[in-house]
Simulated assay, not measured.
Amino acid sequence: MKRQNGFTLIELVVVIVILGILAVTAAPKFLNLQDDARASSLQGLKGAIDGAAGITYGKAAIQGKEASENAEVDGIDVVYGYPAATSAALNAAVTGLEQDWKVAPSVTGADDKQSIAYTYKANAAGATTCVVTYTQAQSVSQAATTVVVPGTGCNPSSSN
């Protein structure tokens, strides 16, 4: 009689099923890709706003309106050549902004007319995390506008 070496097919299938169950339940706890994706989308919005502000400033400079406190360039309200901190000005400057993002209360305060914050459309009303804040130019000597992305780890379904 021959001695059996190795595992039977049933034993191998059972081990594979157990490993599959462990992978499905344990992997998401170790790999939280949603936070990274949210942080990346915020960085993408920051880049889009920065790029649109730079292009708008270039157009304003060509038209000689970069030193004007209030002007209009191609249908965009500008302050010192950069887009004003209004949803109308930024929607005109940044393509697709209003389809994917919504205006959120500013991190510096809702009464601040110098800045505007955007968050995910899925965020609860009043959320002040997971936002990109655009601050308009304050003077002619300001080199650029500022876009601030608070820390990562934000959850679009909550309003921490």
Rank of each mutant, 00 (worst) to 15 (best):
V24Y: 13
A93H: 06
M1H: 14
P150C: 02
L45R: 04
V94I: 07
S157C: 00
V131G: 01
Q136L: 06
K29Y: 15
V132I: 12
I49R: 01
V148A: 13
K2R: 14
D36P: 00
T128N: 09
Q43S: 14
K29D: 03
V14A: 03
S157K: 11
T145L: 02
T129F: 07
K65N: 14
A144R: 13
G54V: 03
K113G: 12
F30Y: 11
G153H: 08
G44I: 03
E11K: 01
A84H: 07
F30M: 11
A137Y: 06
T128L: 03
A39D: 10
G20K: 08
A122I: 01
E98Y: 10
L45N: 05
G58Q: 13
G75V: 06
D50L: 11
S115H: 12
G6P: 10
I10V: 14
D100A: 15
T95P: 08
L9H: 05
I18R: 02
T95E: 14
V107C: 02
Y134E: 01
V94L: 00
S40G: 14
K46N: 02
Q63G: 11
A39T: 02
V73E: 09
I21V: 14
L33F: 15
E98T: 13
V103S: 06
G51W: 05
T152V: 01
A88K: 14
S40F: 04
A122W: 09
F7P: 02
A143K: 15
G51C: 00
A27T: 12
P83I: 01
V24L: 15
D77F: 09
L31I: 10
T133F: 07
A26M: 14
D74P: 05
T86A: 00
Y118L: 01
V14S: 00
T86W: 08
L19E: 00
I62N: 09
N5K: 12
G96Q: 07
G6N: 06
N160C: 15
P156C: 02
V140A: 13
L33A: 10
T8L: 05
